[in-house]
Every structure is written in structure tokens, then in C-alpha cells.
């Protein structure tokens, strides 16, 4: 004769569950909708879409809608080693004519576009400012002159990033 075994008493499953990933970090993906393509930088509006782009290539596309060619007429001045990534002095000058805008892109930052300056007629195509850099990065300056884009790049070594708390 066989005795039917008692159904085994199992602990309630939730007791075993370890609270893992309870603090799931909601990364705001800021789902970039694919509208608003090329917009001229000469536009008076703040280029929100371009500032949202993560990569340098996407940011340049969103801001200008075209690619830049390297030019030795664009002089980009930045330190080779930045001790403090939170404050990196950067300036650009150019001998190009009919300049309408100058923009700075920091490739390794969470969003590449850092600053964009509109240069109206009569303003000298040169600007100096201070930018943050998350880590060692490629820095690109783009000068828009006579409807075309010219760029200069430089590698900046960052010893202390500009994003830490």
C-alpha cells in the first residue's frame, strides 16, 4: 500500500524574492522625435533640438544640416591638459570672410553641442568662453562662413572631469 505523500509545503514565493533593482534608475531617454531636421543657425530661435543630441555628428546635423570640412583658417585655442574639466578656457578666431556663426562641440560630453554663437555683420569672428568637459575629449569648433562650414579640432586631456558632484 502506498501512502500519498503530503503536498510539500513551499514557502511563499515573495519571501524568497530579493528586492533587486528596486531602485531602477529612470534614465530620461528624452526620446528624440525624428522631426525638425535641418535648421539654419541663423534662425533667431534657441536650437533646442541640436542641444539634445548626444553625438557630435547628430548635433552638427541638427544645428546646421550639413557637414564641415577641416580648415587651417579656423584657429582653435584650448589647453592641452585641463586640470579642471569644469572650467576649460576655449577660444576661436578665424580669417574667413562672411562668418555668420561659431559653434563648439565637446565630443565626450553627454550632449555634444556646448555653445553656438551668432555673428551678425560688423561683429568680429572670434569668441572666447569657458566650457565643461566630462573627460578627455575631442573638441571641435565650427565656423559657418558664406553658407559653408569649416572646422578645427583639438584633443584636450582632462584630469578631473567637469561632471562630478
Amino acid at each position: 500500500m502506498t501512502t500519498t505523500p503530503k503536498p510539500h509545503w513551499r514557502p511563499h514565493p515573495t519571501r524568497r524574492l530579493i528586492l533587486q533593482g528596486a531602485t531602477s534608475v529612470a534614465l530620461l531617454g528624452l526620446g528624440n522625435l525624428p522631426f525638425a531636421p535641418a535648421r539654419a543657425a541663423a534662425n533667431d530661435k534657441y536650437p533646442e533640438e541640436a542641444f539634445r543630441q548626444k553625438s557630435e555628428a547628430d548635433a552638427i546635423k541638427a544645428l546646421y544640416g550639413k557637414a564641415a570640412e577641416p580648415s587651417d583658417k579656423v584657429k582653435l585655442d584650448a589647453p592641452e591638459i585641463a586640470e579642471n574639466g569644469g572650467v576649460v578656457p576655449i577660444s576661436v578666431t578665424t580669417t574667413l570672410d562672411k562668418v555668420t556663426s561659431i559653434s563648439f562641440f565637446v565630443a565626450e560630453n553627454p550632449s555634444a553641442l556646448a555653445a553656438s554663437y551668432r555673428i551678425p555683420d560688423g561683429t568680429i569672428p572670434a569668441v572666447a568662453n569657458r566650457l565643461k568637459m566630462a573627460r578627455t575629449t575631442k573638441l571641435t569648433a565650427i565656423v559657418e562662413a558664406d553658407g559653408k562650414l569649416y572646422s578645427a579640432t583639438k584633443e584636450v586631456k582632462v584630469t578631473v572631469g567637469g561632471c562630478g558632484g
Binding site: 565637446v106 550632449s111 555653445a115 551668432r118 568662453n129 566650457l131 565643461k132 568637459m133
Partner: peptide, 19 residues
């Protein structure tokens, strides 16, 4: 004479120079 569009990568207490 000059218009700057800035993102978050501009340093705290921003400085800018132009002519």
C-alpha cells in the same frame, strides 16, 4: 551684435568675450 545659445556644457558663472 552678438547672440549666444548655450547648453549645459558652459561653465558655471559663464564668461564670454567678443568684439
Amino acid at each position: 551684435v552678438f547672440v549666444a545659445d548655450w547648453g549645459t556644457a558652459v561653465s558655471k558663472d559663464p564668461y564670454v568675450k567678443f568684439s
